[in-house]
């Protein structure tokens, strides 16, 4: 694991930062680092402190709710996708668990530092909020679609 922050040029190529300009990416870069995990590693557990935010570089992460009788994966994330949104607002506790289902490489952000940076910088705050809202909205849409169980009967319920 490297403790050096991720270069701005590399961050800027991530899909998450598509609408950010270089100056804003530069504000977040110091709080980032590259991190790797082997297959099977728990990245974070539900109800733990949500003090990090990740972008997946390579590999696959599974999200699941461990409180169910049988553990069910509700979503997997792959390269380019954002992992974690509970860091953004109180109570800052993870709503689900995340495990690496392959060897993975992530860009990890210090969420407390991100929140701090956003407090003093209104524009950055709005950018992060808008971008994260988009992430959450798409996840919600996907979750609803998955909930509809559209493949079992192939018919409108």
């Amino acid at each position: 694991m490297s403790n050096d922050s991720v270069p701005i040029e590399e961050l800027a190529t991530e899909r998450f930062f598509r609408d950010f300009d270089a100056a804003d990416v530069a504000k977040l870069a110091p709080h980032s680092r590259l991190i790797s995990y082997t297959e099977g590693t728990t990245i974070f557990r539900a109800s733990g402190a949500a003090d990090r935010f990740y972008l997946v570089r390579t590999g696959r992460v599974a999200l699941f709710l461990p409180s169910l009788q049988e553990d069910v994966i509700v979503q997997t994330l792959g390269p380019g996708e954002a992992l974690g949104f509970s860091w953004l607002a109180p109570p800052h506790l993870w709503r689900f668990s995340a495990t690496a289902t392959s060897d993975i490489e992530l860009i990890e952000f210090d969420a407390a530092a991100l929140r701090q940076a956003a407090i003093v910088d209104r524009q950055l705050h709005d950018l992060l909020m808008t971008r994260m809202f988009d992430v959450v909205a798409r996840r919600l849409e996907a979750t609803r679609m998955q909930l509809l169980d559209i493949y079992s009967d192939q018919r409108p319920k």
Partner: peptide
């Protein structure tokens, strides 16, 4: 390949088929 839900033994993708496309 992706599925709508899976047990934790599944090592593949879980989610919408649209999300596979950008990759």
């Amino acid at each position: 390949i992706t599925v709508d839900r899976a047990p934790t033994s599944w090592r593949g993708d879980v989610g919408l088929v649209t999300d596979l496309l950008p990759r």
